[in-house]
């Protein structure tokens, strides 16, 4: 049985002689969470809390300065941290969700294992090496298990690797270039999340995965363009803005085709912010600020009007 939209119930409450007790009972039956809903919430909560606590417990254990344990012992414990969840996932009678959660925990604990190895053998590796190796090592894992949270971990690691590389190794990279790289990386992730299920026989990934990557990509693009424009405002800023505009244009086309309002809304805000950077770069006196105010008010209201058009068309279909 589908749930009633709360808004309709509110409308009826406002425009009829419905009594509070009757409304309450209608809410209970038509709007409030059912036993099935609660069951789902508790299951997800226990599962996420269980794995989250367990993995962070093991992580804290590695962070603890365990000087009494001999080197070999450290490695054995770290390796156990990785292999125990993997072995547990082989137990029969596990649900698919639980099995994949175990494997994700194992992939998460690969990082501490590498950390311990680096600590003992003094490989002199940079922090970015650790994250790069971690990401590289779990790539097969991610492909085989093919589980949204694990992909999130993988792409997160790649993001950290790029940021650390820019900070520690690549001295020539400026701030906005690093963010453009992250923009490219996360955009690629969005494309793959949409594309892979179509090219293979896999069922689509949960929609939050692409949205998280898209938010990261749009956030990085905004930061890159904003800082490039504010820094110099020269050709590089123009190039970055153009690249971002092209990607946004393509995304707009796809979002309209797929009727995904989310991408349109996020890109709109990004463009509003980039626009203010251009205005303030041209004139950072009172005139520029005033113009920027008008620009933000105008574009916000205009874009809401424009977005609402799509929302109305799509909701009637």
């Amino acid at each position: 049985m589908n749930k009633t939209n709360r808004r309709i119930l509110q409308l009826l409450a406002r425009h009829s002689d419905w009594q509070p007790e009757e409304i309450e009972s209608a809410l209970q039956q038509r709007v409030h969470a059912s036993a099935t809903d609660w069951h789902w919430l508790l299951r997800m909560l226990f599962l996420a809390l269980g794995f989250g606590f367990l993995a962070s417990g093991i992580l804290f254990f590695f962070a603890y300065n365990w000087s009494e344990i001999p080197k070999l012992g450290k490695i054995v414990i770290a390796a156990l941290g990785v292999s125990a969840p993997v072995l547990l996932s082989l137990l029969p009678n596990l649900s698919d969700l639980l099995r994949k959660s175990f494997l994700t925990t194992g992939a998460f604990l690969v990082g501490p294992l590498f950390g311990v190895l680096g600590q003992i053998y003094q490989t002199g590796a940079n922090a970015y090496d650790l994250f790069f190796a971690w990401a590289l090592f779990i790539i097969i894992w991610a492909i085989v298990v093919d589980f949204a949270p694990l992909w999130l971990l993988f792409v997160g690691l790649l993001n950290i690797t790029v940021s650390l590389y820019a900070e520690q190794i690549a001295s020539g990279w400026d701030f906005s270039f690093t963010y453009m790289l992250l923009f490219a990386l996360n955009s690629l992730a969005v494309v793959l999340v949409h594309l892979v299920p179509r090219l293979s026989f896999r069922k689509p990934y949960p929609s939050w995965l692409a949205k998280v990557f898209a938010l990261a990509a749009i956030g990085c693009a905004t930061v890159a363009c904003f800082s490039a424009i504010m820094d110099e405002g020269g050709g590089l800023a123009g190039l970055y803005t153009l690249l971002v505009a092209i990607v946004y244009g393509l995304t707009r086309w796809y979002a309209i085709k797929q009727q995904e309002l989310f991408y349109l809304v996020a890109m709109t805000f990004s463009l509003i912010v980039i626009g203010t950077a251009i205005i303030v770069q041209i004139d950072d006196n009172s005139g520029g600020f005033f113009l920027a105010t008008l620009w933000v008010v105008g574009t916000t209201i205009g874009s809401i009007f424009y977005l609402n058009r799509y929302r109305k068309i799509w909701s009637h279909e």
Binding site: F51, F53, F60, Y64
Partner: peptide
Amino acid sequence: TKAIILSVSGLLFL
């Protein structure tokens, strides 16, 4: 101590 508390509570949730 934190590590032990966290791991045990994780196992309890599971």
